[in-house]
Amino acid sequence: MKNRRPLFTVAALWFGFAFLYVPIFVLIAYSFNDSRLVSLWGGFSLRWYGELLRDRQIVDAALLSLRIAVISATVSTLLGTLAAIALTRMGRFRGRLLLGGMIAAPLVMPEIVTGLSLLLLFVSMQDLLGWPSKRGATTIMLSHITFCMAYVAVIVQSRLAIMDGALEEAAMDLGGRPFRVAVDITLPLIAPAMLSGWLLAFTLSLDDLVITSFVSGPGSSTLPMVIFSKVRLGVTPDVNALATIIVAVVGLGVLVAGWLMLRQDRLAAGETPIRAYA
């Protein structure tokens, strides 16, 4: 098909992508600026990266955030996948509507409300049960798992919805037991969706500020909390360096994951890469 591309559309794309990417590139450029002032180019320097690594507060917060993110992403992937299987493969059961509602609600709930509600829960639990004895890494993880599993469930659910379940039914008809069918048939099919769910949960957990601020306690400041308190007063060069590192790691990760998924989808659709472009 011959596509006549109107000038307006091309201009809109250029404008849109410039809007999306220029601020990120400017931030990266500033991180190599020797001068503390944003308007002045003081020459290329890695000075802010050095200061960043010597900043104990930032390094500790980053390590805490990574630990929380790995555990939250893993548990929320397990729970989110179970929820997705329950909603798509278990037929009718009591409370199905409620489960569907509860799994979708965190996606539209303002973080500030979720944060407040979880804090009230932890305070009440402490009152009644004496646990959790203090707020910190544990309460942050419990909260992150809760909102991350919703995202995982949505991703895995859409994957399960594409597959019509014929393979599972065939396996059941041949005498396969539900647990074995889930492990041998369903799991390999939804593995890519679980992986992207895990990655999304990981970045969401690593990035969350609002919910974490509510449920965190003294001595357990996560990376976003430290960044927020630093930048609230204005631009700081070491945060630029930190941003550059995060953008580089995430960008690389997403590109690799995106490429893998594209390949997987094509193989799944029975298309050779050549046919896809034909």
């Binding site: 992508f17 999306l20 990417y21 220029v22 601020p23 990120i24 400017v26 931030l27 500033y30 944003v38 999304l200 970045t203 690593l206 990035d207 500020l209 976003p224 960044i227 927020f228 930048v231 204005g234 631009v235 945060v239 630029n240 930190l242 941003a243 995060i246 953008v247 995430v250 960008g251 990760g253 997403v254 590109l255 995106g258």
Partner: peptide, 21 residues
């Protein structure tokens, strides 16, 4: 992919980027 990519990088840092802009 280019539209989705920024969504994966830190939300907080993307907002912060505009402070410098």
């Amino acid at each position: 992919l280019l539209v989705i990519l920024p969504f994966w990088t830190s939300f907080l840092l993307r907002v912060y980027a505009w402070m410098g802009m």
